[in-house]
Write a protein that binds this DNA or RNA. Structure first.
Lengths: 204, 204
DNA sequence: GTCTATAAGATGATAGAC
DNA sequence: GTCTATCATCTTATAGAC
C-alpha cells in the first residue's frame, strides 16, 4: 500500500459498499481543502456523479458522514504508522518518512492534513467528531514520542525535555508548517521547516 | 494600549463609525473561533444588537467585511509589533512578548490566531483577503527575522540556518502549537511548545 | 443608520417512485 | 441504490419606509 495514498484517502476497499468509499474519498479531499463547513452534499454529488439525495442513503446526516470520515481516517493512519514501523530502518528514517507523508499531501493539490483542517474548525464539529479528532492527535503524538524514545535509547537523538514534549513540538510544528506553506504556495517552505525540526533533535 | 486587546480585536477607535468598529470586533471574534465560512450576518446581528440588514449598510457584502477585517487586523498588528520594539528590553524579551500575545488570545475563550484561522480557510477566501493574508504572514515573519538577526548580532541567539528560516520555523511553530493546544483544551501545551521553540535558539 | 419586508439561492434532509 | 420532487431553514443581499 502506497503510504501517501493511504493517508490521503483512507479509502474503504470493501467488496460491497464501493459508492460509500468513493463518497468518503471525495469528502475527505473537500474537507482537506475547504474544511468541514466548507463543503456540501451538492459538492460531493457533482464530483461523484450521483444526486444529493442518494448520498443520504449512505450517510443519513452530514454528521454521520463526518464521523465515518474521521473514523476511517484514524484507522488508515494507524495502518500507515504501523507500516512505517515495519519499513523504516531506524528512528530517524521513521521521522523522515512521517514528515514526507505531509509533504506529499501538500504537493497533491495543496491539501492540508485532515487533522489540522478539522482542528481549525473544531468549534463547528459535532461532538463525536471532536472526540475522534482529539484521540487521533493523541495517537500521532504517542507514536512520535515512541519513535523519539527509541532514538534517544539508540543514542541517535537528543533528549531535550521529555519525548512526549518533543513529540508535541514536532507534531504541532509540522501542522503549522503545512498550514503556512499552503497559503504561501510553496511546498519547499514546509520541507525546510520539517527538516529543521528533525535536524534540531539529531545528535551531532 | 494593551497589547493583547489590540491584537485580539483590532478595534477601530474613531469618533464616528462606532458601530462599524463594533461589528468588526464581533466579526473578528467569530472568525477566530469558527472561521470565515463559519459565521453569518445573523451571528453578528445577534451579538451586536442590530438587524442583519443594518450590517449591510456598513459592509455591503461579506467580502467587504472580511477585507476590512483583515486590513484593520494587519494595521493593528503593525502597531503591536512596533509597540514591542519600543517596550521590550532585548531580542529575547521581544520573542517572549510576541509569543505571550498568542497565549493570551488562546486563553481568551480558546480563540485561534486570526492569521492561522484564515490560513486554514484559505481556499474559501475572496481574492483580496488572500492577498492581505499572505502579506500579513510575510510581515510577521519579517519582523521575527529582524529580531532574530538582532539577537544573533548581540551574541544572544544561535544562528542555525538563516534568520529568515528561523523566523519561519518560529512563526509556523507558534501557529501550529495554537491550533493543536486549542483542540486539546490546554493552553499550557501552547506555552510549553512556544517556550521550547524560543529556548532552542538561545545561546547556552 | 436602522428598520421591515422580501428576494434568490444554497443547505441539510425526507418521501416515495423505480 | 438511485432517482425526482419537495421541505424548512439559513445565507447573502436589496428596496424602501422611518
Amino acid at each position: 500500500m502506497e503510504l501517501h495514498a493511504c493517508y490521503a484517502n483512507a479509502m474503504q476497499t470493501r467488496t460491497f459498499g464501493e459508492m460509500r468509499g468513493r463518497i468518503l474519498d471525495v469528502a475527505q479531499r473537500l474537507v482537506q481543502s475547504r474544511g468541514y463547513m466548507g463543503f456540501s452534499y451538492a459538492d460531493i454529488a457533482d464530483r461523484v456523479g450521483i444526486r444529493k439525495a442518494s448520498i443520504h442513503h449512505h450517510f443519513p446526516t452530514k454528521g454521520d458522514l463526518g464521523q465515518a470520515l474521521i473514523e476511517g481516517f484514524r484507522r488508515a493512519c494507524g495502518e500507515v504508522l504501523r507500516s512505517i514501523d515495519g519499513d523504516a530502518r531506524g528512528p530517524i528514517e521513521k521521522l523522515r518518512a512521517y514528515s514526507d507523508i505531509f509533504a506529499k499531501t501538500l504537493a497533491d493539490e495543496g491539501r492540508m492534513c485532515l487533522c489540522g483542517m478539522l482542528a481549525a474548525g473544531y468549534e463547528t464539529l459535532p461532538e463525536g467528531m471532536r472526540r475522534e479528532l482529539v484521540a487521533e492527535i493523541a495517537d500521532h503524538e504517542a507514536w512520535l514520542a515512541g519513535v523519539i524514545r527509541e532514538g534517544i535509547a539508540a543514542g541517535l537523538l537528543l533528549e531535550v525535555g521529555s519525548p512526549r514534549e518533543q513529540a508535541r513540538i514536532l507534531f504541532s510544528g509540522l501542522e503549522g508548517a503545512m498550514l503556512i506553506a499552503r497559503v504561501m504556495g510553496d511546498v519547499d517552505r514546509y520541507r525546510a521547516v520539517a527538516d529543521a525540526l528533525i535536524r534540531s533533535i539529531l545528535i551531532e
